[in-house]
Amino acid sequence: MTPMRTLATAGRVLLQIRSDPRTIALLLVVPSLLIGLVAWIFDETDVFASIGPAMLALFPFIVMFLVTSISTLRERRSGTLERLLSMPLGRGDFILGYTLAFGLLAIVQTAVAVGYATLVCGLTIDGSLWLLFIVAIADALLGTALGLLASAFARTEFQVVQFMPVFVFPQILLGGIFLPRPQLPDVLEVIGDWLPLSHAIDALDAVSTGDEDDAFIWLRVLFIVCWIVGAVIVGSLTLRRRTP
C-alpha cells in the first residue's frame, strides 16, 4: 500500500462521480427532501424533535451503502478490478481510496442535511455541531464499508439492491426509532445493542439534546469505528487477486 496509489484511487472515484451530475444531485438533495417529509408528517406533534436526529443517521448510511456497493460491483464486473489487482495496487489502496472519496462526499452530504434539518425543519441541536458531524461521517463511512462488503456477495445490481433490506432494515427496526430499545423483547434488545446504527442513533440523540457528556458520544463513535474496521478487513479479504 502506498499513499500515492490510495490518493490516485480516491481522485479517480471522485472524478467518476463528477461526470455524473444526477448522482451528485441525488446524493445531496434526497436526504434533505426525506427529512423534510418526515418533519412535515409530524408537523402537528413534537415527534420530529425526537426522531429527527435519527433521520440524520439513517440517510447518509443508506445512500452511502448503495452508492459504494454498486460502484464496487461495477468494478468487479467490468474487469477493471481484475486489471488493477494484476497491477501493483494494494488491496488497501483500493478500499481506502473508496473510503476516502465517499467520506468526503459524506461530509458534504451531512452538511446539507444538517443545515436543512436545523434551518428549515427547525430541528434544535443543543450539543456540539462538531460532534454531530463526526457521528454522521462515521455513520456514512459505515455505509461505505458495509457496501464494499455487500458487493462481494452480489453478482448483479439487482442483488445489491436486495442486500439493502438485509443489511439496513434490521438496523433501523432494532435501532430504537420505532420503539426505544429497552422496551424491546430481551433478545432483540441485545441484538440491537450490538448493531452499529443503534449507536449512531444514540449518539445523534445525545448530541441534539445535549444531555450526555462528550465521553458518551465518543464511546458510541468508537463502537461504530470498530464496525467500520471490521467490515473493511472482511471486505479486503473478499478482494482476491486470484479468482476461479
Binding site: 479517480r12 467518476q16 461526470s19 467490468s78 474487469g79 477493471t80 481484475e82 486489471r83
Partner: peptide
C-alpha cells in the same frame, strides 16, 4: 490486456 476492454466508461 483483458479480452473485454477493462476501462472506466465514465472517465
Amino acid at each position: 490486456m483483458t479480452q473485454a476492454a477493462s476501462i472506466y466508461e465514465d472517465l
